[in-house]
Amino acid sequence: MKAFAVSLVTLWLAAVCQQALPDRLSILGARPDFLLVAVSCLSLLIPAPGSIVIGFFGGLMHSAMIGANLAQYVLSRMLAGFSASRIGELEIEIGSLLAAATTLAITLGAQLIMMFLAPPRSLGGYIGDTIQTAIYNAVIAIPLYAVLSPLLKPKRT
């Protein structure tokens, strides 16, 4: 129940930030993807069936806000959530830095899936933007994971 409530609030806040902040926080053209960061950090702390549902709603909210193809976003975010939860289930202590590295990899993976589902016009530009966003997301994941970890981690032990 606690995990559900925390996930709901986190996704809502991420959606609000996704609407209001990316352009305002853009650095040298790099724009963060708050919903993907939320999916990644939550999925590191919530095991597989839950993380897939989180990915589903993360993708659903993102595509709904911008009117982009829903299936592409949902599928890529579900796989991102599942991958992050597999990393979270490993017998290693996950700190904020590892969460950042995971988010970086998850962002690259999710955007790679998007690239195959909806081929971009300019491949070079898309890959460049994806790398920039992945780095930005990794930085945002550090404080977010630090906040979420105490709320959700005890449930898993």
């Binding site: 996704q18 609407q19 990316p22 352009d23 806000m65 911008i66 009117g67 982009a68 909806a118 933007d129």
Partner: peptide, 12 residues
Amino acid sequence: IIAFDPVTSRIT
């Protein structure tokens, strides 16, 4: 403008 997606060139 309340949302912008550079991938699909679309704004809300």
